[in-house]
Amino acid sequence: MRAGELTVKDEEEFSPAKHIRRGDVVEVVNPQGLVTLKLHPPVTKTSQVRGEDTVCAPQADETCPRRALAAHYARNNPGPNEHLFAHNVSGEHQALKKKAFLRALAKAASAAGIKKVHGHAFRIGGTLEYLLRGNSFETVKTHGRWKSDAFQRYLRRHALILAPHLQDVGTLQHDFIEVAIATDEVAEDQDQPAPATV
């Protein structure tokens, strides 16, 4: 997501019609039992009227958004109609301001001895992370809500990203191709269409 979709500009007041609320986050379980978190900011950069859904999934390591949200809820406990990242400031809940968020990131990056992180780096970094995991370009494009192929201009480490897509995938594919060719040859010999396969 874009940092501005999860924060409030410094000069703005929180508005439930414009900014993401805790109630805009729901858990969804698919038929296979896989859990995702669906976030629906009511306004995004590319959808100013209806907003857009985006999803994230639990992870096995410290990057797990589900655990991070649970920790945030336990500490700050925003109400369902408050900003998703409302936190206690001088005894009252305030929406997370974008500049405060970026300052906290800069402080954390400095403490970790890494380069300062900018807001747009999340979309670039998220794109790279999912591609390095072997997800297809179309999956990453859909997940990132990219309306065009513009995300490709941000890509780095092309050799690592393309490696899973360029490999010989082994005997399973070879066996499938042999079966498919044999089926087609039999069908041609019998002058009948090939049987449907699953």
Rank of each mutant, 00 (worst) to 15 (best):
L131T: 04
V169Q: 14
F137M: 11
F137G: 02
S148Y: 06
E185K: 15
L166T: 09
Y130S: 06
L155C: 02
I181Y: 12
P164K: 11
L162E: 07
H165Y: 10
D175R: 14
R156C: 00
K141Q: 14
I181E: 14
I161S: 01
Q152A: 08
F151C: 01
K141I: 07
L132I: 01
D184C: 12
Q152C: 08
L162P: 00
A112F: 15
R123D: 06
L132A: 01
G125Q: 00
S148D: 10
A112Y: 14
G170K: 07
A108I: 07
A159Q: 14
H174M: 14
K147A: 12
H158T: 04
D175Q: 14
L131D: 02
S148A: 03
E185Y: 12
Y154H: 12
E185W: 10
E138V: 06
G144V: 07
A108E: 04
F122C: 01
D184I: 13
Q173G: 13
H158W: 11
V140L: 00
A109L: 05
R123W: 02
Y154E: 09
H118F: 11
H120Q: 06
G119D: 02
L172C: 10
R156H: 02
F122E: 00
I124C: 07
A108T: 07
D149P: 05
A121V: 03
I177F: 09
V140N: 00
R156A: 02
Q167S: 10
A112C: 15
Q152Y: 08
A182S: 15
R133L: 04
T142L: 14
K107W: 13
E178V: 12
K116T: 12
L155K: 03
F151H: 03
G125I: 00
E185D: 15
T183A: 13
L162Y: 04
Q173W: 14
H158F: 10
W146L: 02
G125Y: 01
A108P: 01
L131G: 01
L132S: 02
G113W: 06
I161T: 03
F151V: 01
I114H: 15
G125N: 01
V179G: 09
K147I: 08
V179W: 05
N135G: 01
E138F: 07
I181G: 04
L155I: 03
T127S: 07
R156Y: 01
F176Y: 13
D184F: 11
A109T: 08
A163V: 03
L162W: 02
H165F: 14
T183H: 08
H165L: 09
E129R: 13
R153Q: 11
F151R: 00
T127E: 02
E178M: 12
L166V: 09
Q167E: 12
S136G: 03
H165P: 00
H158R: 10
A180I: 04
K141A: 06
L160S: 08
A180D: 09
G170M: 05
L160G: 06
R156S: 02
G113A: 06
